[in-house]
Simulated assay, not measured.
Amino acid sequence: MAHTPDDASDTRVEGGSLVGGQFDPTTVEAVGKLSAALETVEVARGHLYQFHRLSGTADFEVEEAIGLLRKAGHAEFADELETHLLGRNVLPGRWTFQVVEGYDETYYQPFRGFEERSRQLTGGHRHLYEAQLKRDRRSPGVPGHEATPASST
């Protein structure tokens, strides 16, 4: 596959700084791995928010069930649900919003900070590893393999 340096992100880093249009491949790979790890954490965080939303929805559905049970004459069971299940903590002392906040403050925000700092090693470029993969895998001059959106028009 021919290589044509026609993409602005078509660079590498050597020793953490731009040298001769190239960056050190191991540094690029390491920063790419850290960025990929952050993407995984983003997915995990999304699942955590989904857990938060689903748990809250379930609590509102329990509330509706309690009302229906009372209406159907099952007040004792409805009272038991209202006392012991409605509004119950999902973890000791925590509702789901507190779990989400704890994750964000304890893990997610520091992780994002480290990933952002790592990009200083690659001249501030984002997704440099992926840009290198794109450069290496695309077929210049073939439709659907353009280097940039502007070159595809």
Rank of each mutant, 00 (worst) to 15 (best):
residue 75 A to C: 02
residue 133 L to D: 05
residue 43 V to Y: 11
residue 71 K to A: 15
residue 1 M to P: 10
residue 74 H to S: 12
residue 44 A to L: 15
residue 20 G to C: 03
residue 88 R to I: 10
residue 84 H to P: 01
residue 36 A to G: 11
residue 120 Q to L: 13
residue 118 S to W: 05
residue 86 L to C: 00
residue 123 G to V: 01
residue 135 R to Q: 14
residue 65 A to W: 00
residue 17 S to C: 02
residue 137 R to S: 09
residue 102 G to E: 13
residue 93 G to Y: 03
residue 12 R to I: 07
residue 10 D to N: 09
residue 18 L to I: 08
residue 94 R to F: 14
residue 145 H to K: 01
residue 27 T to Q: 09
residue 29 E to I: 05
residue 61 E to D: 09
residue 56 G to L: 02
residue 103 Y to A: 15
residue 43 V to A: 14
residue 57 T to F: 08
residue 54 L to K: 05
residue 13 V to C: 09
residue 104 D to G: 05
residue 44 A to G: 10
residue 71 K to S: 14
residue 14 E to K: 08
residue 18 L to W: 02
residue 64 E to Q: 12
residue 74 H to D: 11
residue 57 T to P: 00
residue 98 Q to G: 15
residue 142 V to L: 10
residue 118 S to E: 06
residue 24 D to L: 04
residue 126 R to N: 11
residue 101 E to Q: 14
residue 99 V to P: 05
residue 135 R to F: 03
residue 74 H to V: 00
residue 71 K to H: 14
residue 50 Q to D: 14
residue 66 I to W: 01
residue 47 H to T: 04
residue 99 V to L: 14
residue 124 G to P: 08
residue 147 A to N: 06
residue 6 D to L: 06
residue 101 E to A: 15
residue 139 S to N: 09
residue 104 D to Q: 13
residue 108 Y to W: 12
residue 56 G to V: 01
residue 36 A to L: 11
residue 9 S to W: 04
residue 2 A to Q: 13
residue 141 G to Q: 07
residue 22 Q to G: 03
residue 126 R to H: 12
residue 40 T to L: 13
residue 90 V to S: 01
residue 55 S to L: 06
residue 124 G to T: 09
residue 42 E to C: 03
residue 35 S to H: 07
residue 139 S to F: 10
residue 131 A to S: 15
residue 31 V to F: 09
